[in-house]
Design a protein around this nucleic acid. Structure first.
Length: 422
DNA sequence: TCTGGGGTCCTAGGACCC
DNA sequence: TCTGGGGTCCTAGGACCC
């Protein structure tokens, strides 16, 4: 059996930990640049807000219902996520971190000595006690069914945070009541296709013959079908190295000037290089893309991207930033109001396997690597971007995303730790 | 005025090889 | 008269996830 542990409205729950008084109140957290709603509490849903709503359109609803709005604060959420994961790892032998707010716990070996649901309820209580984050748990023979279970646990109090699907009757009952669109692995396209064949519930889908599914759908949908029938086949093992690393942002204000655009691309390139070194990798290609504002039909639209190859695989910020600048020059067009840009590193490999290149354009590579290590160490000690390239521009540049409702770095900045008066 | 960011996997088709 | 079979690798785009 496998358990999925899912944090309820995770980003909102984290904000609520540090803002006592929001309990039971509508809260939502915005995407970068204060754009759309990405997380919201049930109370916020109840007043008519949805995930994905652009916040500027919901201003009336927000004001009328006294909804508390937060800008995104990923450092805070990541720090809290690590705490939750640590508690899980201390409770269950084999834990796989699947996303910032979800983990799979493999319960092999726990069946004999524990009542599984009871055991996991203990874990839920521990997480609540130590972090104040509410979680929901689904337990089932496959991950897809565990996900179904966790949704039931979240939506019905009677389960007391843990829903176990451990018999065929329970499985069929759950799949009959569950929304097909909410099944893990069924996206919009697959849902529409299933509907065209008259399949409208997960149970109807699971009850189809294997050949029926095989002849109409590709492998991923077949796997979902197997999982719904209790046959585990989806592998979510944590990948040691990312195959591509991307940093992209929408701009706070639209950018027309090449130099301003260049500083944004330099900033993104440097972030990518930093992430790359973080996983001890090197990259061989740098892709830069730029986009105008697709919502402004009154302005000329333009979007383009290009990839440059690096002569030697590298994780050097200076080299990567220069390559990105070169790429940008070839796609920049004057007279466009740019809204977004991004940098993607590709052809990633392990830094330790890197062969020395006789014709390396950087003769003092070992020293350059030491320089990067030094920069990383300083930035780790004194905060991100404390030491950075001049090319990355001012922190006040117009392209920096808006973030008008951001809470503090309560878990990572000594000056911002909350003071509690008793 | 205003609309997110970062990934993975799969597949079809083309290019190329012997 | 009339043009094979089997394979790999790469890439772009689609679909999905959080």
């Amino acid at each position: 059996m496998v358990a999925l542990v899912d944090c309820n409205s995770f980003f909102c729950s984290v904000e609520k930990v540090f803002h006592p008084g929001l309990h039971g109140k509508p809260v939502c957290v915005l995407s970068c640049n204060d754009g759309c709603i990405v997380a919201l509490t049930p109370e916020a849903k109840a007043v008519g807000l949805h995930r994905g709503d652009p916040i500027f359109r919901m201003k009336d609803t927000v004001e009328r219902n006294n909804v508390t709005v937060f800008s995104t604060n990923m450092y805070l959420y990541a720090a809290m996520s690590r705490r939750v994961t640590n508690i899980l790892r201390s409770s269950v032998h084999h834990v796989e971190n699947y996303s910032i707010d979800e983990s799979f716990c493999y319960l092999d070996g726990y069946e004999g000595c524990h009542d599984l649901a009871g055991y996991m309820r203990g874990v839920v209580e521990k997480i609540r006690l130590y972090t104040d984050i509410p979680v929901s748990v689904g337990i089932a023979p496959s991950k897809t069914l565990a996900k179904v279970g966790s949704k039931f646990a979240k939506n019905y109090r009677g389960y007391r945070s843990v829903c176990m699907i451990d018999s065929d009757e329970k499985r069929r009952k759950a799949l009959e009541l569950f929304d097909l669109a909410d099944v893990w692995g069924i996206g919009r396209q697959t849902l529409a296709k299933l509907n065209r064949f008259g399949v409208t519930t997960p149970l109807q889908f699971a009850d189809k013959k294997e050949n029926w599914v095989k002849s109409r759908f590709a492998l991923p949908t077949l796997q979902t079908w197997m999982e719904l029938n209790g046959i585990p086949c989806i592998d979510t093992a944590e990948k040691p190295r990312k195959q591509s690393i991307c940093t992209s942002r929408s701009f706070g204000e639209m950018v027309t000037d090449f130099e301003a655009l260049k500083t944004s691309v330099a900033d993104f390139a440097a972030s990518c290089a930093n992430k790359l070194r973080g996983q001890r990798s090197v990259a061989s290609s740098v892709t830069v893309f730029i986009l105008s504002n697709r919502f402004r039909k009154d302005l000329p639209q333009y979007g383009n991207g290009t990839t440059v190859m690096l002569p030697t695989p590298t994780s050097d910020t200076i080299e990567i930033t220069m390559a990105a600048a070169k790429a940008l020059k070839t796609i920049y067009m004057e007279g466009i109001h740019y809204k977004k840009a991004g940098v993607i590193l590709g052809d990633i490999s392990d830094a330790s396997y890197l062969q020395q290149d006789l014709f390396d354009e950087i003769p003092n590579r070992p020293e350059r690597n030491q320089l990067m290590e030094g920069i990383d160490r300083l930035n780790q000690l004194y905060g991100l971007k404390t030491v950075r390239l001049a090319a990355e521009g001012e922190q006040s540049s117009i392209w920096r995303p808006k973030s008008e409702h951001k809470s503090g770095n309560y878990l990572s900045d000594l000056d911002e730790i909350l003071t509690i008066k008793i």
